[in-house]
């Protein structure tokens, strides 16, 4: 017998129970907003052109020195000329982010799935997870470096610690939204507890899981870059401190441009995943 169903006869035509206290973006803000018309997209592009062109023009017009603020064209030029020196660092950052996120997200997901099955355990554990969510894991990096050296390990751990709890707390919100009617339905067709988990609970929780993955990976990116700035000689974060120390501002902004592109790619990736796997809830 599935524990959640027990003796209960679900109340139909009522909204599913639980949920609502996840940290992070709400399900609705997962999207890139409502559908945009061609006209609106045109305006968005136009604004970008005005900002980029305008700053290019103004910086040149007022003769702002490169070391104060480089022009967009200088930044893009630096990106191309410096690329051969930057891309190994990009790989390091991506590696740390991916490995740290994969570890953190898997642990967070499994923990959420297991813990929500035991309300008592969940009540005990949740405050600690919240503590992990709210404490900036960057603070641990100096300590981790002290213990583990200047390699990738301390940063991977920091990323896992930053993204895991985010994934966990949002997934748990998803898993808590039990719909007893759906569970009863599956059971009436002879579903096992495991089948109920894979065919009902996970799909039901999917929108919140995806939100957790999105927020978690963005948190992971922040932590990766921050941890690289704290210590070590590799990664895009390290390049930021490096270029700013040498006052090589076009290169500095080129790195920021790369980080922005990574961040947006993560967002777009999860937006599409959400569209594919969680659009039923919209």
């Amino acid at each position: 017998m599935d524990k959640a169903l027990g003796d209960k006869i679900p109340e139909f035509n009522k909204k599913k129970s639980g949920g609502g206290d996840g940290v992070g973006l709400s399900g609705a803000s997962l999207g890139l907003g409502d559908h945009r018309t061609k006209f609106e997209i045109l305006i968005i592009i136009l604004v970008a052109v005005v900002i980029i062109g305008g700053s290019e023009f103004l910086l040149k017009w007022f003769g702002v020195p490169q070391y104060v603020l480089p022009t967009p064209s200088q930044i893009v030029t630096a990106l191309f000329t410096e690329w051969k020196f930057i891309w190994p660092h990009l790989l390091v950052t991506l590696y740390e982010l991916l490995v740290g996120f994969a570890i953190g997200a898997s642990i967070g997901f499994v923990l959420a799935a297991v813990i929500t099955q035991f309300p008592f355990v969940e009540k005990i554990v949740t405050p600690y997870i919240l503590l992990l969510v709210t404490t900036p894991m960057l603070a641990l990096v100096p300590l981790l470096i002290l213990k583990l050296g200047f390699g990738s390990e301390p940063r991977i751990i920091a990323v896992a610690l930053a993204s895991g709890p985010m994934v966990m707390i949002n997934s748990a919100t998803g898993f808590r939204r039990v719909d007893l009617a759906k569970i009863a339905l599956a059971r009436s067709f002879g579903a096992s507890t495991f089948q109920i988990f894979t065919k009902i609970r996970i799909p039901m929780a999917m929108p919140m899981i995806i939100v957790g993955l999105m927020v978690g990976s963005i948190f992971g990116l922040l932590t990766t870059v921050g941890a690289e700035m704290v210590g070590g000689a590799e990664g895009l974060g390290n390049r930021l401190t490096y270029y700013s120390a040498l006052i090589r501002m076009p290169q500095f902004f080129a790195v920021i441009l790369i980080l922005a592109i990574i961040g947006i790619s993560i967002y777009v990736l999860f937006y599409w995943i959400g569209k594919k796997w969680a659009s039923w809830e919209a």
Partner: peptide, 16 residues
């Protein structure tokens, strides 16, 4: 039991 099927109030279809 496999010989028994239930039909619930509101169709109880899986929305996904």
């Amino acid at each position: 039991h496999p010989e028994i099927a239930m039909i619930f109030q509101d169709a109880n279809l899986l929305p996904w």
